[in-house]
């Protein structure tokens, strides 16, 4: 049995906007599921509905077998939520706010456990600081600590790295990996493909309130992972040199650019051999750059493939 079971979930907001159009999804215990989709896809609505912030329309949601509406206490005890925005009371101290969260979920006081979480998230030194004194990255960690304070089995992270710089993003990925190793099931939303690639076991693609597909990351990345390598050369070519004819290269109209399509997640991309061959053909390269398909392009291709 999946730890989170969602069946035919629909949500129509008061204005008539249909945010979720019949989502069915099972999330397995211990996995990291990334929900990938552009802004407005329905990711936050889905998470908010599971966690009780938004009222569900039609359909059912069960967490650990407990219906989130009828049996909301047992369901919510199993869930931790880290919201997308940084919502913290500015004058409260770190330790106090985490302890408050534990009490709110009905757990007995356990300062030793809170110490463990704060140490795990590198917040122990800041335990007496007021939340308004912390940096953005620290504040996000406090939100994670609050979500973990009641020892949930399922943790929802809504865009944990939105607006976070590259270093902090990697940092956050490490935190997520560590949480997974402690046995927590993690569902995170993101609109970065590389984020899903870096940390998820499975990836769900959501757009326009519909779940387009859910796949193992490796399968999906092989499909999504197509990249274009553009090689600029100093002297324009009138035609492709014979030595490179069977390399699958395309020559631009002005003869200055060679383009090559490859799968970035594959073990052998063929790039090294290709660059060797280009050099041996006597061409002088002056610039290299790669491009990947945008999320929107991927959605378009998914819809074209008739996945939905």
């Amino acid at each position: 049995m999946s730890i989170v079971e969602i069946e035919n979930l629909r949500k129509i907001y008061a204005g008539g906007f249909e945010a979720l159009k019949g989502i069915t999804l099972g999330i397995e215990e211990g996995e990291i599921l990334a929900l990938l989709g552009p802004n407005g896809a329905g990711k936050t609505t889905l998470i908010s509905t599971i966690c009780g912030i938004t009222m569900p329309g039609e359909g059912t949601i069960r967490v650990g077998g407990h219906d989130v509406v009828r049996d909301f206490r047992d369901a919510r005890r199993m869930i931790g939520l880290v919201p997308q925005e940084i919502y913290l009371e500015p004058f409260t101290r770190v330790f106090d706010t985490v302890r408050f969260s534990r009490g709110l979920f009905g757990k007995p006081k356990d300062d030793a456990y809170i110490e463990k979480i704060l140490r795990q998230l590198s917040l122990w030194d800041k335990r007496e600081s007021r939340t308004q004194e912390l940096s953005g990255g620290m504040k996000r960690r406090v939100l994670i600590a609050k979500a973990l304070a009641h020892e949930p089995r399922v943790l929802f992270l809504d865009e944990p790295t939105a607006g976070v710089d590259v270093e902090l993003r990697k940092d956050m990925w490490d935190v997520v990996a560590e949480l997974k190793s402690s046995g927590v099931t993690i569902i995170l939303t993101t609109h970065y493909i590389e984020e899903a690639e870096a940390i998820a076991d499975r990836v769900g693609v959501i757009n326009g309130g519909e779940l387009l597909l859910v796949e193992d990351k490796d399968v999906l990345m092989a499909r999504f992972g197509q990249k274009e390598l553009h090689i600029e050369i100093t002297e324009p070519l009138s035609e492709m040199p014979a030595a490179l004819a069977d390399r699958g290269l395309r020559l631009s109209e002005d003869g200055r650019m060679l383009s090559y399509t490859f799968v970035s997640t594959g073990e052998r991309t063929g790039i090294t051999a290709l660059l060797n061959d280009i050099a041996q053909a006597g061409l002088v390269m002056c610039d290299l750059r790669t491009e990947e398909s945008s999320l929107e392009e991927i959605f378009v291709s998914l819809v074209k493939e008739g996945v939905v």
């Binding site: 912030i53 919510r76 009371e89």
Partner: peptide, 17 residues
């Protein structure tokens, strides 16, 4: 009003209360 204003109301809404 304060939790509504700073956004921390999400915690009350998602808690088993």
């Amino acid at each position: 009003y304060f939790p509504k204003f700073v956004g921390t109301i999400y915690e009350l809404l998602s808690a088993p209360v």
